[in-house]
Design a binder for these strands. Structure first.
Lengths: 348, 348
DNA sequence: ATATAAAATGTGTTCGAGCACATTTATTAA
DNA sequence: TTAATAAATGTGCTCGAACACATTTTATAT
């Protein structure tokens, strides 16, 4: 398995390396005869340019902006920063500049403001967690207009032409939660789907999870689960706690609960002791959540792997710029089920 | 954040790049004065050589041998080949040669024979799945003597000085299985640990899983699980089926079963219909196993990710040779819990 | 036929690290 | 002091792709 270089191809075709280069890059200024001869050889040999040499000379500097929610406002996003860091480290020598911009996940206006600033940075690529549907769509259109290559992670948005997305299939994710609760509770039980502190207008991802959850139970035969959806929504965290407590006190019949985001610790904090007759399933390996998982209050967490999502999204953009790789269409990541025993294997 | 080159350092220190090079690689022939000046600068700047340029010139060709069980004899190993393929593809241009050697996982003599052949290949590195404890230890000693850098994957072996291993923590893996069964069956049940078709003398990995499984239940309070270990061992697959069938017929009281390897489909084939009062947990996403997972006969599979294990093991060796990276000590991979709903997210 | 433009092809430099070899400077022996 | 030797330092080439620029060949106009 020989490694062919441009020089090898040139010699085989009886031309100079300049001509081979022109053929490879379609720069024109090549006679039909030479073009065909070289092209045939390239195909025959399945020539792959040496990626090492290719990037040595590369004096271009590509800039990418990552637009994601402020981890201070929602800890879920903390590990994304690690993933971005990792990718930056990995491609440091290739001339990649990454600028991280944060926005308030509870404030559309702030997102709009930050996205306008991001556009002004005049970057080559944009990695975005499109929390707000409508505003994100506007932003993406603006990126297209400004010839900025964009990529989405965490959640997808509807009504898009392109398919540039990395993350989990949230519908399937809801089904996974349903299966876990079903297997734990057996037939006949009262189950709650709980959306905590979400702006539902924009949170189609919550709805996707709910749909998957409900579909799973709808498809079952011979069992009788009663499923109700609850929305606990408050900005103020003290208020939220009161609401959750009230909710728990007034719903003693619920034996299974599916909390559709990482806020599950707010509910777990009020449940305290382990109860093997109950099944509580939620999302994400926040330290708070893992604590309740290990103490047995939470039974399962679904790991959305935000770190890997951010890492991969960034790497896709970088490799597109550096190596002309195609940007992938909808890359779905594994949906990891975590219990008290395997939690530690996912943390670092 | 400027990218410093050897030339930059040389200019700053007022010496030639040759001197800087000698300092970096400790080749000597440098005056104390120059050495210190350059070294101070290197540290101050935190100089990192450009990995691209570094490998361009590299005319050395490193060879690695992968010694793993024949996937034809045990399908578990099939996906390892994909992982190896992936790594080879990724590092093709860096001058890496990989030779895969297969051995019969049920025949120690064959392993010994193949390992002797492998040693004769005169490779730089060796990636090994050390199924047979004693023989593998002998082989590793031989590698050390022949100055071959080795790395282990899938299972570790005892009594080694070095810690070069990538795979899962099998003790933890057993605990994960136990937690799944515990959560599904609640208090009081009869549970079986089943080792199918294993040569136990060498299969310390089975024992690790069993220990984790039992420890989990031993640590529980106020519950009464009865746990029994069964060994179903036959080379001939027809015989095995008969044994399994006999086992099932004579143990109707068992409501939970933990099968410690990928052979779980042999048992599942005889269980047929779904039963929500039962909990069957096993290992690995073989097509056969996934089939029974989706039909509800198997409740959970623990994914050992052999593809990633082989991939990472190979990459560690390659990066050690190419970039002088340290070989990692015991890299434990996540233990993935798979049910009927998230299975597809792990398959390609 | 010859000048001129256009097309095709070839040549040479660059990127950064690594290493062989050339050159300069310091040290020791005669 | 000078020659011989050792130590220290500098120079220049290589890897493969990319691209600017030089040169040659072909086509077109006068």
């Amino acid at each position: 398995m020989k490694k062919y270089t441009i020089k090898d191809i040139a010699e085989l075709a009886g031309v100079s390396k300049g001509t081979v280069d022109r053929v490879i890059h379609n720069r024109g200024k090549v006679s039909k005869h030479a073009f065909e001869k070289v092209n045939r050889l390239l195909k025959e040999i399945d020539y792959q340019p040496n990626p090492i040499a290719r990037n040595l000379k590369n004096n271009k500097v590509y800039s990418i902006c990552v637009l994601l929610p402020d981890p201070k406002k929602d800890k879920y996003w903390e590990s994304c920063v690690d993933g971005i860091e990792e990718a930056v480290q990995e491609f440091f020598h290739f001339g990649i500049t990454v600028k991280v911009m944060l926005f308030d996940p509870f404030d559309q206006k702030n997102f709009e403001k930050q996205s306008v600033t991001a556009l002004k940075l005049n970057v080559n690529g944009m990695l975005l967690a499109p929390l707000f549907q409508k505003e994100s769509l506007v932003f993406i259109k603006a990126c297209e207009k400004a010839d900025i290559t964009y990529f989405l992670f965490n959640n997808d948005i509807e009504k898009r032409e392109t398919q540039r997305f990395v993350g989990q299939n949230l519908y399937v994710s809801g089904r996974v939660g349903a299966r876990l609760i079903h297997k734990s509770l057996k037939n006949n039980a009262t189950v709650a789907i709980i959306h905590i502190d979400e702006v539902l207008k924009n949170a189609t991802h919550m709805q996707e999870k709910e749909k998957g959850f409900r579909d799973y139970f709808d498809e079952l035969k011979g069992v009788d689960f009663e499923i109700t959806t609850y929305k606990l929504k408050h900005r103020n965290s003290d208020n939220l706690k009161k609401t959750v407590k009230y909710f728990i006190d007034t719903h003693p019949e619920i034996s299974g609960a599916f909390i559709t985001n990482s806020k599950i610790h707010l509910l777990a904090a009020l449940l305290k002791e382990e109860n093997s007759k109950r099944c509580i399933v939620g999302y994400d390996l926040l330290p708070e959540n893992v604590k309740y998982l290990k103490s047995g209050v939470i039974d399962f967490l679904i790991h959305q792997n935000p770190k890997r999502q951010a890492y991969l999204g960034l790497v896709f953009l970088i490799e597109h710029f550096l190596f002309d790789k195609d940007i992938p269409n909808k890359r779905f990541l594994p949906i990891d089920i975590v219990n008290s025993e395997n939690a530690s294997t996912y943390l670092k």
